[in-house]
Design a protein around this nucleic acid. Structure first.
Length: 592
RNA sequence: GGUCGCGUAGCUCAGCUGGAUAGAGCAUCUGCCUUCUAAGCAGACGGUCGAAGGUUCGAAUCCUUCCGCGAUCACCA
């Protein structure tokens, strides 16, 4: 039983024995820094059951607790708040119990149920940009958090590798590409293909302008521009399996995948399994037919199939076109079912997709529920806000995107500049330095994005570089490096002996309190699918440690038992920083 | 117009399952490196928590209305 449960029971006992009244529940909160105490009981809610002066009630309960609970050493009452001081022995016991636990905070016995987390899911016609970075970091981090909370996780994506937009790049390359390849140009494959996506758009716009110049209406010109018709023809050829088209498609997608792999690798994200739209876009049609027979869907006169969701406060939604072809929704229904078939232990899925698709997922989940899948109760749309620039939305065709690869490089460069300025890396080889710049640069970028509540939009200003001071990744990494430096200089290992009888410094106590919160923070982050909670937790821990570091001498302490304890405490803080950052996909350096 | 989300210090964000005097970082200013890494620490300055009502002993937090910003409401994905 943890201390809070003990206290809750004892408070109830106190009220029962003093006032002969039954408390339904006890409300706790951490004691504010301005008051003495570790945990605070709020007296006000008790007034419903116990009539009287809150201060007097609090005092009586405090006296009772002090007498009946070993861990309670002191108390004070301010207004209706009973502040309780927990004795040092309790914190030392706690520390002894976790000191050598390797993955403290993680649940290491995974549940039988698995959850599949989908993220990234790019189109294969252009390189990844900052928006994808947020998606990737969120999806990866939430996967790691769910794992740490005891879930079995499959990471996946659905690669949008077909469709008219893909044909546009293909066609432009075929017409204007002059057989360029990643090898011949030195361009990364995804960037090369992206270049032709832009080339297409330019040619398309020129054709429209030309047609409009001949007196054709603009909307008509947009539909009849020859290059667009040609792209549509190419899509038809692709769908009918035309060999030359399919070969070109395979070649260019191959370039893109190679490029994506590099970016994913640089970003440090990975996947357990992949789904390709070209394999799944036909899925779901059979399911829709079944659902039609069961009366879940209905057919309109033109043959298109719909679902009526007006009872749920939504509209009617199409699930199959009148010509019998699949829409986005059809495909997603099929893919979801396919995934559960492929991985029968799945009970729940997380879709990491921007909030512009909130409505789509609301509908998708409802449809799957109506189709009677029990796992449909466990679907979650990890909906996140867009990443905007000061100039507004990023648009790849207009070249206003922040390219993922460029951004990573520029973060590394900034890390290098700052490191050189500070000049603390004597004795590091060039390779070690390079590795470190990457760790720090990526740490800054990842933390910057993950510390924000997923559902909020992010305004990214490329002119102002991401900070390396204050509430940032590098600040936390720096603290970790400091701890490692202490450990290198320290002679002491982790002692097997129980630390007891020490009088704790206030800063030590605060650190132990913060460490104690780690397991529940992981659970909370998992329940809320929020890496931001982990980031904020880690920042608080690190701030507390730096304050401790500044005020209390660790290696300079002459009392051997105290020194040993402080070294071990520092080591544990370092371990928690590392564990927490692992959940964010951020590495920590031994020096910096 | 309907639906959903957001609005907290000059800027970027915490806090939101109701609790004490609303917290950090950046920026500005003041101290602290002959002592464990100053990417640090300590402090100052900075707020009608978008507005107005309501519920409550108590509201940034819950409810209603309004204002502002964004998204969405395709036989696109």
């Amino acid at each position: 039983m943890n201390i809070q449960e003990v206290l809750a029971q004892k408070v109830k006992d106190a009220v029962s024995s003093i006032y002969n009244a039954e408390l339904p529940s006890v409300e706790f909160q951490p004691t504010r820094k301005d008051f003495e105490g570790d945990v605070t009981v709020v007296v006000f809610p008790m007034l419903r059951v116990v009539k009287g002066n809150p201060v007097e009630i609090g005092t009586k309960i405090g006296e009772y607790l002090q007498e009946h609970v070993d861990e309670v050493s002191k108390f004070n009452v301010v207004k209706g708040f009973l502040n309780i001081v927990i004795n040092d022995a309790f914190y030392l016991d706690f520390f002894n119990s976790i000191k050598t636990v390797p993955d403290f905070g993680y649940v290491t016995t995974p549940s039988k149920d698995a959850v599949m987390v989908e993220y990234s899911s790019p189109n294969t016609n252009k390189p990844l940009h900052l928006g994808h970075i947020r998606n990737n970091l969120l999806g990866y981090s939430v996967s790691e958090i769910l794992k740490a909370a005891g879930k079995k996780v499959y990471k996946t994506q659905i690669i949008n590798d077909r469709g008219i937009h893909i044909c546009k790049s293909m066609l432009a390359w075929k017409k204007f590409g002059e057989d360029e390849t990643p090898e011949s140009t030195g361009l990364k494959g995804d960037h090369l293909v992206g270049k032709y996506y832009v080339v297409f758009d330019k040619a398309y716009k020129e054709e429209i302008a030309e047609l409009v110049g001949k007196g054709i209406a603009k909307d008509k010109a947009e539909k009849e521009a020859p290059i667009l018709l040609e792209a549509q023809e190419m899509l038809r050829k692709w769908e009918s399996g035309d060999e030359a088209t399919v070969t070109l498609w395979k070649t260019m997608n191959g370039w893109v995948y190679e490029g994506f792999d590099t970016t994913y690798n640089n970003l440090g994200v990975d996947f357990d399994t992949l789904y390709y739209e070209s394999n799944t876009y036909l899925l779901g049609r059979d399911v829709v037919k079944e659902g039609l027979e069961k009366g879940i869907f209905f057919k309109k006169d033109d043959g298109s199939v719909w679902i009526d969701l007006t009872d749920e406060g939504l509209d009617e939604k199409i699930v199959l076109r009148s010509d019998g072809t699949a829409v986005y929704m059809t495909q997603d229904i099929g893919t979801a079912i396919q995934r559960v078939t492929d991985y029968p232990d799945i009970n729940g899925m997380v879709y990491t997709v921007g909030n512009e698709q909130d409505y789509h997922f609301k509908v998708l989940f409802l449809i799957l529920k109506k189709l009677g899948y029990n796992w449909a109760q466990q679907l979650y749309h990890l909906s996140y806000g867009m990443v905007d620039l000061p100039s507004g939305k990023m648009k790849s065709r207009e070249g206003t995107v922040v390219d993922a690869d460029d951004l990573i490089v520029s973060m590394e460069k900034t890390a290098e500049e700052i490191s050189n300025e500070l000049g603390k890396l004597d004795g590091y080889t060039d390779a070690e330095k390079k590795q470190l710049y990457r760790t720090i640069g990526l740490g800054a970028l990842k933390y910057y994005i993950l510390k924000v509540d997923p559902k909020k939009r992010i305004l990214f200003n490329p002119e102002e570089s991401v900070d390396f001071q204050g509430n940032t990744g590098p600040f936390i990494q720096y603290t970790y490096a400091r701890i490692q430096s202490i450990l290198r200089k320290s002679e002491e290992g982790v002692s097997e002996t129980i630390t007891s009888g020490l009088e704790l410094h206030q800063k030590e106590k605060e650190l132990l309190k913060q460490i104690r919160l780690f397991p529940e923070t992981i659970q909370l982050a998992a329940e809320n699918y929020s890496p931001a909670l982990i980031a904020n937790y880690t920042y608080d821990l690190v701030k507390e440690f730096n304050s401790f570091y500044q005020q209390v001498s660790i290696l300079g302490e002459t009392d051997a038992a105290k020194r040993q304890f402080r070294v071990e405490l520092s080591r544990k803080v370092g371990e928690v920083i590392q564990s927490a950052f692992k959940l964010l996909g951020i590495n920590v350096p031994g020096r910096m």
